[in-house]
């Protein structure tokens, strides 16, 4: 297990990060927390991309993809923050459980 660092190792780290992100999204009632969960998920994916870039013929494409992901994540963070602020303005709270207007 501690022998050579293989593709698998990175993939496992990515998987864990991803799962942590999912859990974070499902358990946090705080909007910011959910945003953090999203970041974790994205990072998990990024690790996988870079790992594939390094160990498979995917090559530079993986890196470029993760670059885009990072950029998009930043954008997403900005928008999400704006949403959160709006949400807060409207509900005087950041508790996402309050925002259930869409309940069927």
């Amino acid at each position: 297990m501690f022998s050579d660092i293989q593709l698998t190792n990175y993939l496992l780290v990515g998987a864990f990060l991803f799962v942590c992100g999912v859990v974070c999204m499902t358990t946090k009632r705080n909007g910011i927390g959910i945003l953090m969960g999203v970041e974790l998920v994205l990072n998990g994916a990024n690790i996988n991309f870079i790992a594939f870039s390094r160990y498979t013929p995917l090559g530079l494409d993986g890196q470029i993809f993760s670059l885009f992901v990072i950029v998009l994540a930043a954008a997403e963070a900005a928008v999400a923050l704006a949403i959160a602020l709006n949400f807060y303005n409207n509900h005087l709270s950041i508790d996402v459980d309050r925002g259930d207007e869409l309940q069927g």
């Binding site: 999912v22 009632r29 459980d97 259930d100 309940q103 069927g104």
Partner: peptide
């Protein structure tokens, strides 16, 4: 009858996805 699934709760939706 399926309406109840539509809880409006963000977190539950994520759960559903998972």
């Amino acid at each position: 009858s399926l309406r109840v699934v539509q809880t409006g709760s963000l977190r539950q939706y994520i759960m559903f996805i998972a």
